[in-house]
Design a protein around this nucleic acid. Structure first.
Length: 420
RNA sequence: GAGAGUGUAGCUCAGUUGGCAGAGCACCAGGUUGUGGCCCUGGUGGCCGUGGGUUCAAUCCCCAUCACUCUCCCCA
């Protein structure tokens, strides 16, 4: 019985890992182009950061966190999301960050103890970005457009961008009450889950996928009709800025967030017909979070997170096999192994991938390996040639082989470097 | 937290109404005395997920357990 990885956690091996690093490189480039710098925060944080930041009553905090007591007796938690930690870091490293606004991005793994299924693991990865220090609606549009552009660059098609506003402390309570009152009159039309949600978190009922609930809430009051002036004009400006950038979107007044810290603008990129895990990226504004985490100043902010596993799942394509080497050095007998080894290592320094068979199998086998490795050239060390100071130099595509002096062969091989 | 399905070779999967464990691909070797792809021949490789039970006999039946996949819930 071999040791298995922990449930819900996956190894990422080549060639799959190549897709990961390519995606990350695209994200880094796109982030840099928009003026974002990388931030790396610890994977482990004090539990309190998440219970206060994410929300005591959320499912994440209530039942999904990897929490344990360390040897000093502190309660620590593997981060279940990125934003709270980035805010904490920005607050404690304020002097390093300089003037507002601050633009930061991160790449990393998150942990939630859920039942694993398609597009949902216990260790999963997010690409995220946060823009701190401005509550201007154009900041919202910037962040959304950045995300939209990145997803396009990543090759994602068929996504729909949905946006909504959740109001703020001035207008949300009134809406909450109005919705609760409305739902109280429809109780018997709701599914079992929503009867419970109606009391604990009425907004969630709007997000229910059950047909009953969708019908029951068809004429529910809309947050859009109850916004305060500040939130209304903010939302309208975000929309017009997005139109100006030609970012297609649709309003979804039923969209809700699972984390407590969101205010005003929220957005989500969803794939129609993807089942329950159809959100590939999501985000929103969280102007109150810094204060919830103990900041004396209000630090308005907006950000997003992308589910890497989901994004890679959606952009899956048949990847042609990639050549693992440029040259294969065939040694006709084991006595050439030291020399072949030297060549391999010298060529590596010059940026040429040269493979050899350390086991010195039969010529036939070595050529088979050369073929499979995708090498365009095979160099053959053979008894007869070597005595004349020559090696065989075979063009694998043409199937033609010539004899070259050792120095000439080396020169030819060095020119195979990807740079030249 | 609730439900369903699947665990047999490195991979994809057959199979036995309970009686020596199978194929294709992959791998190794040979056909070709020093040369790849195609073809042919042969070979290596399995505690039939794990533990218990029933039985003369269990990969197969029963129970438990673990893992994976999927759904609900929730979320990226």
């Amino acid at each position: 019985m071999t040791l298995q990885p922990v449930r819900g956690m996956k190894d990422i091996l080549p060639p799959e890992s190549l897709r990961w690093s390519a995606l990350e490189a695209t994200f880094r480039a796109c982030a840099a182009a928009h003026g974002y710098s990388e931030i790396r925060t610890p994977i482990l944080e004090k539990t309190e950061l998440f219970s206060r930041g994410v929300g005591e009553a959320t499912d994440i905090v209530e039942k999904e966190m990897y929490t344990f007591t360390d040897r000093s007796g502190d309660s620590l938690t593997l981060r279940p999301e990125g934003t709270a930690a980035v805010v904490r870091s920005v607050l404690s490293g304020r002097s390093e960050i300089g003037e507002w606004p601050a633009r930061l991005y991160y790449i990393g793994q998150m942990f939630r103890h859920e039942r694993p299924q398609k597009g949902r693991l216990r260790q999963f990865h997010q690409l995220g970005a946060e823009l701190f220090g401005t509550d201007a609606p154009h900041a919202d549009a910037e962040v959304i457009a950045f995300l939209y552009r990145f997803l396009s660059q990543a090759g994602l098609t068929g996504v729909s961008l949905q946006i909504n506003t959740l109001g703020d402390p001035e207008c949300r309570p009134g809406y909450n009450q109005a919705l609760a009152d409305f739902l109280a009159g429809r109780d018997e039309m709701l599914c079992d889950d929503c009867r419970r949600r109606r009391l604990t978190n009425p907004l969630r009922v709007l997000d229910c996928k059950s047909e009953k609930c969708i019908a029951a809430t068809a004429d529910a009051p809309s947050i859009l009709d109850m916004l305060c002036d500040g939130c209304r004009s903010h939302f309208e400006t975000v929309e017009s800025a997005l139109r100006g950038l030609a970012v297609p979107f649709e309003r979804n007044p039923r969209m809700v967030r699972g984390l407590d810290y969101y205010r005003r603008t929220t957005f989500e990129f969803v794939i129609p017909g993807m089942g329950a895990q159809n959100t590939v990226a999501a985000g929103g504004r969280y102007d109150g979070l810094a204060e919830m985490l103990g900041s004396r100043d209000r630090i308005p902010a907006i950000g997003f997170a992308i589910g890497v596993e989901r994004l890679l799942m959606l952009t899956e394509t048949d990847t042609p096999p990639v050549a693992s080497s440029d040259v294969f050095i065939v040694a006709s007998s084991a006595k050439f192994l030291p020399e072949a080894f030297l060549w391999r290592m010298e060529l590596a320094e010059k940026g040429v991938r040269a493979d050899i068979d350390y086991e010195c199998r039969s010529m036939k086998s070595q050529f088979r390996r050369a073929d499979r490795s995708g090498a365009s050239v095979v160099v053959v060390f053979g008894e007869a040639e070597w005595e004349r100071g020559m090696v065989g130099y075979r063009d694998m595509a043409k199937g033609q082989q010539e004899e070259l002096a050792v120095d000439d062969a080396k020169r030819r091989l060095e020119s195979l470097s990807t740079g030249g």
